[in-house]
Structures are given as structure tokens and as C-alpha cells.
Design a protein around this nucleic acid. Structure first.
Lengths: 189, 189
DNA sequence: GTCTATACGAAGATAGAC
DNA sequence: GTCTATCTTCGTATAGAC
């Protein structure tokens, strides 16, 4: 019952290609080559064509990110460490050749896909802010730190990748971790 | 003497299209249509093809950014305000449809162009750090704040554009301005 | 410096057989 | 569900005339 996996593999493959080579690099040919999925069933699985595939890919990236954030819970420090860890792992695993699939879509997509990317960022921001509040951070500070954490991390990933050097990422990570410790200290008092 | 302007217009046009539509959106056809430049002279002006045009475009964006930063000088506060102002103006002028051309190249380019984008980020970071030091900020703090300012701003531009809402940018801007005031306060003491 | 014409390949998408 | 074949559009790039 349900799909045997071809559709799933295509979605994951598209997510990887978006992260590594951008929207134009995530062509059907590339996705099929990377996943071994059958060419004949592209439009069976994705009647909406490439946009539908890309939308599914960034939705999956979003869900996974949200799920991992939830597991982190606890303090502002652990949330920040965990969020940074997700992107550090992406850079490490790829040898600094991959970035964020959502960012890749945000800079070169149709209006519909741009909207979906915006929704992903809103979800991440809201989820992070809610978890920070659970950790005892005041709502206003939780909201502004959530936006800063996401934007600075995403920007740092872009810089580290372009410079082929993890240094800018680690510099930003250290600064954000210091801020997170301040949040926890204030929450405890 | 020198070029009458066709080459210059193409470079500027490419920069605008990169910012608005990404690398694949900055095709020769689009650039020619946007600038009115003659199709027959593309490879006269850019023997290296598209990569050479894109390289020239992000180099020009970089130069302009560096020049404007130099004009700002003064304090950490004025530098931060000015840097944020450059990107706020970009978002405003375009109705939140344009982003940073260098980021667009960083997520979807050839190795050579990726290197050039990395060089741009290094130049911005070094220049900002140097100006912060002139403003009395300690070298280590100047370096880390320069990286944070660039990465957070770039990330915020991506988020604001995707969400079609300036709010995330302004939230990040407020946080960065508060940090800049701290730097100035410490520099004065 | 600019033109037309064109070669070449890649990409998205569709049709119809199996 | 998957295949092959094909269509169309587009983008890069080249050649040679003006």
C-alpha cells in the first residue's frame, strides 16, 4: 500500500540538489540520475511538474527541521546549539558545498514557490519563538532572537560556503551562543 | 574613448536581474531586453560568456558597497545603520522583490563564480572590520561583529523577501543596532 | 561594434504504448 | 506505473557579413 519509494526518493533527491546546486541544478534529469527513479513516472507522481516537486522538497526540509527543534527543547542554549548543529552538519557532510534548500528557492523561484519558502521561514520562526518561551524567555525577546538566529545562521551558511571556509559560520555561532546564554541567565532570575 | 556604455549597461542590468531573479533569470536575452543593448556584441564585450558578465556584475556590486561603507565612517552605530540602510533601500525600491546578487550567485554557480562571491564576502568583512577598528572597537570584537552584521543582514533580506514582509528585516536591524551601540559605548570608555 | 543566422544542448512537458 | 518518443522553448555560443 502507498508508494514503494520512488516518489519519496525523488523528493529527497530534489532537496539535496536544491541545497547543492540551486533551483536550476535540481532538474528532472539530475534528480532521476541521483535517485535512479524511473523517468516515465515523473508526471504520474508530480502532475504539477517541477514546481510541485520543489514544493514537496522544501516542505520536507521544513518538517524535518521543525521535528528536530522540538526534540531539542529545554533551554535557549540547547535550542541555539541544536539549531546551529543542523546547519553545521549540512556544511560538514557536504564538504562546504551545500547550503539551505529554502534559501536557494527564495532567490530564484516563481511567485508560488517564493510564498512557500516564506511560509517555511514563518513556521521556523514561530516554532523557535514558542520553544524559547517555554524555556522561560520573555515573548518579545523570544520573537526577536528567533528571527536573528535564523537569519544570521542562514547568512553564515551562505558565507561559509562561498568562502569555502567554516570560519564565518563558527564566528556567528559563537556570538549567537553568547546571546543564548544571556537569555537563559535572564530567564533564571 | 573607452566604451560608450553598452557594456556598462549590460553589467548593471545583469546585477539587477541577479538580485531579482537569480542566476538563471539573468540570461542574455533578459539582460538585452532590460538594457536595450545590442545582441550582436555580447561576445565582443564578454569573450568569457555569461560567467564573465556575472563576475563583472557582482564585482560592481561589491565595489559600490565598499565605497558606500567608506563614506559612512565614524562610529559603529553609523556604520551599522548605513550598512543596513543599503539593504533596506534595495528591499524598498524593489517592493521586496530583490535580494543580494552575491547571495544569488553563491547558491547556484560554477566553482569560479562561487570563488568570486566568496572573495566579495571576504572584502566586505575585512573592510567593515577595519572601519570598526578605526571607530575604536577592539580588533577581535570588530571582526566578529563584521561577520555577524553581514550574515544576519543577508539572511534577513532573504527572509523578508520570501515572506514579502519587511518585519523580519527590521527586527534583525533593531537587534544589530543595539549591539552597535554597545560597541560604541565600550569604545568610548 | 553590431548585425543575422544558426548550431547545439538542456530543460519542461505531453502523448500513447505496454 | 513505467516506458519511449517527441515537441517546444530557451539559453549559450559561434560564424561570417556589414
Amino acid at each position: 500500500m502507498a508508494e514503494p519509494g520512488a516518489r519519496d526518493r525523488m523528493i529527497d533527491g530534489a532537496a539535496v540538489l536544491l541545497a547543492k546546486r540551486g533551483l536550476q541544478g535540481a532538474s528532472f534529469s539530475e534528480v532521476l540520475e541521483a535517485t535512479g527513479a524511473p523517468r516515465g513516472s515523473i508526471y504520474h507522481h508530480f502532475p504539477g511538474g517541477k514546481d510541485e516537486l520543489v514544493a514537496a522538497a522544501i516542505a520536507r526540509v521544513s518538517e524535518r527541521t521543525l521535528a528536530r527543534l522540538t526534540e531539542l527543547g529545554g533551554s535557549a542554549t540547547s535550542l541555539t546549539e541544536g539549531f546551529l548543529g543542523l546547519w553545521r552538519a549540512l556544511l560538514d557532510r557536504s564538504g562546504l558545498t551545500a547550503g539551505c534548500a529554502v534559501v536557494a528557492v527564495s532567490v530564484a523561484a516563481s511567485d508560488d514557490l517564493l510564498d512557500r519558502a516564506g511560509t517555511v521561514f514563518r513556521e521556523w520562526t514561530a516554532h523557535l519563538a514558542a520553544l524559547l518561551e517555554e524555556a522561560g524567555v520573555a515573548p518579545a525577546r523570544a520573537a526577536s532572537f528567533a528571527v536573528l538566529l535564523i537569519s544570521a545562521t542562514e547568512g553564515a551558511v551562505v558565507m561559509a560556503r562561498a568562502q569555502r571556509d567554516l570560519a564565518p559560520f563558527e564566528s556567528v555561532a559563537a556570538t549567537l551562543m553568547a546571546s543564548a546564554r544571556d537569555l537563559d541567565a535572564d530567564a533564571a532570575s
